[in-house]
């Protein structure tokens, strides 16, 4: 074979027997109509609480979940004090014992605030007695385990006593578990919000986390709830999910209809509830085989917002494009 033949043969061998990775076929983007898609940035360790409004579909306010410990009810006649369950807080009522002395947490029995918002199931229950127009302390001392931050670090322990609620102002004192300097704190009711919050860090400070109670519908947050073993034993667990705007918003769960087929006529007849955790965390589950969270896209919710309008909503993702969890994606539509 002459040289030309060799070269031609060589080139043919190189060219003919070659191939490359096949590109995927492009898929058409889904037609969504009036359905809106949003991603809520709770961040990878769920470090933020975000207040979301369905109309106009935006996060109204957000705060680091560790910036407060207690919430004080602001409604007229309101008296409830809630724990920051996003930090896995718990409390115990020691009764009428001297305040400010050192305590040992061994054998203490702890309580959590139930995630459905039932006022009968708060860790700091009725802390007062009524005297005329004033709410006076029952002089119970509470020990507060402040919980964990987003990196799992312990936030510490406080002992606290709630002194009174006078002239729309809560008065209380707090110190460390072993006693020491006693700090006085007060929180004035703000009638525009559901709760005003307080941080027990350092000397203490008031924290205004919530936007006006008519300005948001949902809270994306971590919170503590009770799970049950197969034997029916309850145990507290920190979950990531969605709570309703208490007192303002209601919701219903639809496990039957496909999201696209839910109409106003179907939605208006659903059983709505004010339970805070009706949406909760159960719209996703951890898939051990895949090693990641899987969203139940077949689960839909109908929400009656602060103005009474109905929206259908479902979750369609839990990761952002960089593969980080803590970025739930929702799609929703006003009915």
């Amino acid at each position: 074979m002459n040289t030309s033949g060799k070269i031609i043969g060589f080139i043919l061998l190189v060219i003919i027997f070659q191939s490359c990775f096949k590109e995927d076929d492009m898929l058409p983007a889904p037609v969504k109509g009036d359905v809106i898609t949003d991603t809520i940035a709770m961040t990878e360790n769920y470090g933020y609480q975000l207040y979301f409004r369905l109309d106009p579909g935006k996060v109204i306010a957000s705060n680091p979940r560790t910036n407060s410990d207690l919430g004080f009810e602001c409604a007229p006649g309101g008296w409830k004090i809630i724990l920051n369950t996003a930090d896995f807080m718990k409390a115990t009522d020691l009764g009428q014992v001297p305040f400010g002395q050192p305590f040992d947490t061994t054998d203490m029995k702890w309580k959590f605030d139930k995630s459905d918002g039932n006022p009968d199931s708060l860790a700091i229950g009725q802390w007062f007695t009524i005297n005329g127009n004033d709410t006076l302390s029952a002089n119970h001392v509470y020990i507060l385990l402040r919980g964990l931050d987003e990196n799992g670090n312990d936030l510490g322990i406080r002992q606290i006593i709630f002194d009174s609620l006078k002239n729309n102002t809560y008065y209380f004192r707090f110190t460390g578990l072993k006693g020491g300097t006693i700090y006085s704190g007060s929180v004035v009711k703000d009638p525009s919000v559901n709760y005003t919050f307080y941080s027990l860090n350092g000397v203490g400070s008031v924290v205004h986390n919530e936007p006006p109670d008519t300005d948001y519908d949902l809270i994306f947050t971590q919170y503590t709830t009770l799970l049950f073993t197969s034997l029916g034993q309850a145990y507290p667990y920190l979950v990531t999910g969605v709570l309703l705007n208490r007192n303002q918003v209601q919701a219903a769960v639809d496990t039957v209809n496909d999201f696209s087929s839910i109409t106003f006529d179907i939605a208006k007849n659903m059983n709505f509830t004010s339970k805070l955790d009706v949406i909760g965390y159960d719209w996703k589950y951890y898939n051990f085989d895949a090693g990641s969270y899987t969203v139940r896209t077949g689960l839909s919710y109908v929400i009656k917002d602060t103005r009474g309008y109905l929206y259908k909503l479902r979750f369609i993702g839990f990761y952002n494009k960089q593969g980080q969890k803590g970025y739930p994606s929702i799609e929703y539509q006003r009915l």
Binding site: D24, E44, Y319, K321, Q322, G323
Partner: peptide, 20 residues
């Protein structure tokens, strides 16, 4: 290296989370 692939545009974005 893990990539997030959008098949409507065929663009891919690198996953920066630790598992990626």
């Amino acid at each position: 290296q893990t990539w997030f692939k959008d098949l409507t545009t065929l663009e891919k974005t690198p996953v920066t989370a630790s598992w990626g």
